[in-house]
Design a protein around this nucleic acid. Structure first.
Length: 433
DNA sequence: TGTCCACTGGAAGGGAGGGCTT
DNA sequence: AAGCCCTCCCTTCCAGTGGACA
């Protein structure tokens, strides 16, 4: 075997070349040399994959198509607001229509722009995102920050209005934008047609929160909700159809046990008919089967997949928390380990202050820590509710929603938290991370 | 019924950081 | 370089709160 080690600016490169005599077993063989489960493309089982046909969403697609068809004639379609819980096919249906619109648009006069407002969640961010779709010259692009909103808006209208066209903007998770940055940007976009001569713009808002329109200015409310649609959750039978359709494309014949798809469908149906969850369950179950070199995906793999998905999700959330949030979470865990299963904000803050002192990082105010506790609650890592203890005052009652051992296992890998490994709480215990 | 406790959570504003314009 | 604008993270201030207790 020839091994070449070379050092470059970016690090060390190792290259191996195998002679014929070296063609022995490698560490990868066990994973390559077994019956395959998947056909080529695993992405077919990802929620982002848009199939050629969306089962049980034909009515909604046709209704939307009837509204959007106007765009192909050069007129402005009505704005649409789409509501429905997670995994009910809202985004998939809209993206599918975007694909179809592209096919039908022979004159190439319709622009279909998709944006997720969880990612683009500020006023100028939204305007910048739309504007830059129509600015080819990089040097003329609207910067992420630095420009006054009015200027961004003027540049945007100027660029989109330079030719006759219809622009359809899909704002997914539009409620996140409204809750975070208010409805100013929607007001701007809703009235943009008044300032346009050549172009016409309409908006498709997607939300899983029916109540968010209550937070909108009545003028925005009426303009944005010219058409409203609700996507109902899928039932177990419908989820089965969706999974069957994808599994035919994704798996080699005969590798899926007949009980697997009904089980994935049933588990996802319990979870408010979430197709995304059903697809994840099936994909992860198959991946687990493949990794353990099993020849068939069984119900046992589905149950394992369920646990894995839940745990992975929690681990990922904890890992990506900012240091201060990790310290607050750690303070809650330490309280739990002292048999204080239901603690108050004050108790958490006392431990938190100790931890920050040990680590030598700045101590935030109790007001800020209250916010961090609420954020951890929203992430589902803890459960906090406001409770009055009479003369004992009114405060949050906090408990962790995940086992302390799991939190410690994840935080143990965090070098930043090294300094608090041997934190000794004021009472008596020694805790090891 | 009024008092008191330990906060909660809204509002206002400071300051850092990133980026553009003049 | 100075000035401006925006976002994000944070502090400070303070009115409001639910329920035990006197």
């Amino acid at each position: 075997m020839n091994i070449l080690i070379s050092t470059g600016n970016d690090g060390v490169f190792l290259s191996l070349s195998l002679g014929e005599a070296d063609m022995e077993e490698t560490v990868f063989d066990r994973f390559l040399d077994h019956k395959r489960i998947f056909r080529k493309d695993k992405d077919i089982l990802r929620p982002s994959y848009i199939p050629d046909e969306l089962p049980h969403r034909q009515d909604q697609i046709e209704q939307m198509a009837s509204i959007l068809a106007t765009a192909l004639k050069g007129d402005r379609p009505s704005n649409i607001l789409i509501f429905g819980k997670t995994g009910t096919g809202k985004t998939a249906s809209v993206k599918y229509l975007g694909k179809e619109m592209k096919r039908a648009d022979k004159a190439l006069k319709v622009s279909f722009i998709y944006m997720n407002c969880e990612v683009v969640d500020t006023q100028s961010g939204v305007l910048q995102n739309i504007g830059n779709h129509f600015i080819d010259d990089f040097s003329e692009r609207i910067p992420f920050t630095g420009w006054a909103t009015e200027r961004v808006y003027n540049t945007l209208t100027q660029h989109i209005d330079n030719e006759k066209r219809v622009i359809i903007i899909v704002m997914d998770e539009i409620d996140k934008l409204v809750y975070k940055s208010g409805d100013d940007v929607l007001y701007h976009l809703a009235k943009v047609n008044d300032d346009l001569v050549n172009a016409k713009l309409s908006i498709i808002g997607i939300s899983n929160d029916l109540k968010f329109t209550e937070f909108l200015d009545p003028r925005v409310q009426s303009r944005l909700g010219e058409e409203k649609m609700v996507f109902p959750p899928y039932n177990a039978e419908q989820l089965k159809d969706i999974l069957n359709q994808r599994s035919i494309l994704a798996f080699i014949d005969g590798v899926i046990d007949p009980g697997v798809i009904p089980l994935c469908a049933a588990l996802a149906a319990q979870d408010h008919g979430d197709a995304r969850r059903a697809l994840d369950l099936l994909r992860v179950a198959a991946e687990l089967a493949e990794r353990s070199s099993d020849e068939e995906v069984t119900q046992a793999h589905v149950y394992k997949a369920k646990n894995k998905i839940e745990l992975d999700c929690v681990i990922e959330v904890i890992k990506t928390l900012p240091t201060q949030s990790k310290l607050v979470l750690m303070s809650i865990i330490i309280n739990e380990e002292r048999d204080n299963n239901r603690m108050t904000t004050g108790e958490v803050y006392t431990v938190y202050k100790d931890l920050t002192r040990m680590m030598g990082v700045s101590t935030l105010t109790q007001r800020r820590v209250t916010d961090l506790i609420s954020e951890l609650d929203m992430l589902g890592l803890i459960h906090a509710r406001v409770k009055s203890f009479g003369r004992g005052g009114r405060t949050k009652e906090i408990e962790a929603s995940i086992p302390p051992t799991e939190v410690r296992r994840v935080l143990a890998d965090d070098e930043v938290l090294d300094a608090i490994r041997n934190y000794r709480p004021p009472s008596q215990m020694t805790l090891n991370i």
